[in-house]
Design a protein around this nucleic acid. Structure first.
Lengths: 190, 190
DNA sequence: ATGATTTTGTGACGATCGTCACAGGACAAA
DNA sequence: TTTGTCCTGTGACGATCGTCACAAAATCAT
């Protein structure tokens, strides 16, 4: 739980009273590898603050898995649009390793926020971070080639490469695993 | 100004007192075609609510313009990450037509939000909408081929096609104008 | 240690894309 | 009308990617 408080205080000033107010919204839970945090077709009613392990978001289209994001320790995983609008999620979030997360319940969070502008502000910061990350990855695809995308991840998210297999990474980069393999080969030959 | 109030009330409940509190943060301004709303290298200190006309966000990399978004009437254009973090913007926003916008000043908005949880909540909703749209377009690139992306825009944003030239659209879809032309040809021949 | 499963690399081939070059059409200004 | 500019289409060619197939390497469970 202390990890979450540290995370919050890195975003915005947050009193111990507000931390107490927030407690009813928090539950700690563990997930086995491949277990769902969020399943396609269900409504997302939680934020998942990752304490240990990592998970991924992915679409399954015509039986093919397409990874859209990886989430590691001290990050929040969720489906912003489903969480915000109450509509069904179009993608899954699943643990890639045994995972421990603090689940922040939407309804109880909103109740707490009604009486605390600091909590409301915290919510805004969380969404802002999410929007920034989405923007970063949207640009990654709109602006760069697959090879440049790989180099961007290598430079900016080296930890991701350490923990995610090349097949999983290829799916995330929007190419087949064969293509990723050839990009790596091409590059080493130059 | 009424358009902005209608926009706000479509997002969240908003009293006339809060509307009055918000007034100091608002300025109306017109832009000529090709004029900058936000220039690369400067910090984004405003939200631009578009009353009439439209604008685009774009990167200029090695002299090549890459469009990343179009913003029309009753939408808010901004650079969320620059607006939120205070860092310099890496892209431009420029009017594509003569444009009228209500400029919402960041500092004065934050002052107003300090004393009003309704305004703070409004800010959260604005960012949420932005995050949702970013997510939508990030997925468009991660999941679909150029042809499927075109079909998605045709189905979901037909108005965009009416107002944006094919060259501009090609840049937005992440392909050259020649490729977009051939996609359209291929499709009509089937 | 052994066998099964997963992950990665690679060759062949066709499809798609980017680049360069050029031509025709739409539109606005003189 | 004429000129100039911008937008769109298309042909040629090389580069890159996806698909299918198979093999090697690494990992996991027993």
């Amino acid at each position: 739980m202390e990890a979450l408080l540290r995370y919050i205080r890195s975003l915005t000033s947050f009193s111990t009273e507000n931390w107490a107010l927030l407690q009813p919204a928090l539950t700690q839970k563990t997930f086995r590898k491949k277990e769902f945090l969020l399943k396609e077709g269900t409504v997302c009613r939680s934020l998942f603050f990752i304490v240990k392990g990592y998970c991924k978001s992915y679409y399954e289209i015509d039986g093919i898995v397409k990874n859209t994001g990886f989430f590691f320790e001290n990050e929040i995983a969720t489906n912003v649009s489903s969480f915000g609008s109450g509509q069904k999620s179009e993608f899954n979030i699943a643990a890639c390793e045994p995972l421990t997360a603090i689940i922040i319940d939407k309804e109880k969070l909103f109740e707490a926020a009604k009486n605390s502008i600091e909590i409301e502000t915290l919510g805004r910061h969380c969404i802002r971070l999410f929007a920034t990350k989405q923007e970063e990855f949207a640009n990654l695809f709109q602006l760069y080639t697959p090879q440049e995308r790989l180099e961007y991840i290598e430079a900016r998210y080296p930890a991701l490469l350490q923990r995610v297999s090349l097949s999983q990474l290829a799916s995330f980069l929007g190419v087949t695993r064969e293509t990723l393999s050839r990009i790596r080969k091409r590059r080493s030959q130059v």
